[in-house]
């Protein structure tokens, strides 16, 4: 956002997301868009071997998310996904972290049981495409 396409693309994403989940189910964190805080997964932080500082950095993001009271967080990339997932577990927030493609396919009714790894129990069984497909948890 801040580093490349700017707020216009943040607005596009919000438009698409709200179309999937309904306007009333979207809660923006504060501050947001170009003023938002980085989650602390980027720049190599996740792989650099400083977990204490990485989580300390991410604490701001964790607080922002908890403040919204939301159960699901959409992550923009794999680094964010891994970092926010870790923050949720580490600081006990218990919120779920998903990629946007999961939500889009869920809304379109084409998300099979196998493609629901990051959905929580509340959404695992909602609008399932080919319910008969079995998933073996590893």
């Amino acid at each position: 956002m801040r580093k490349s396409f700017g707020d216009a693309i943040a607005d596009d994403l919000r438009y698409a997301l709200k179309a999937c989940i309904g306007e009333e189910n979207f809660i923006d964190m504060q501050p947001n868009k170009s003023n938002n805080y980085c989650c602390g997964g980027g720049g190599g932080f996740l792989q650099s071997g400083f977990p204490e500082e990485r989580r300390g950095y991410g604490k701001i993001k964790d607080d922002q998310i908890k403040e919204t009271g939301a159960t699901y967080v959409i992550a923009g990339c794999h680094n964010c996904h891994a970092q926010i997932h870790d923050l949720s577990e580490h600081f006990g927030g218990g919120y779920h972290v998903v990629h946007f493609w999961t939500i889009l396919c869920l809304a379109l009714g084409i998300l099979s049981p196998k493609e629901r790894a990051y959905l929580g129990p509340d959404l695992k069984k909602v609008n399932v495409f080919h319910d008969e497909i079995e998933v073996f948890e590893v």
Partner: peptide, 8 residues
């Protein structure tokens, strides 16, 4: 190494 290059 603690900077995430976020440009904030």
């Amino acid at each position: 190494w603690f900077c995430s290059m976020c440009q904030r």
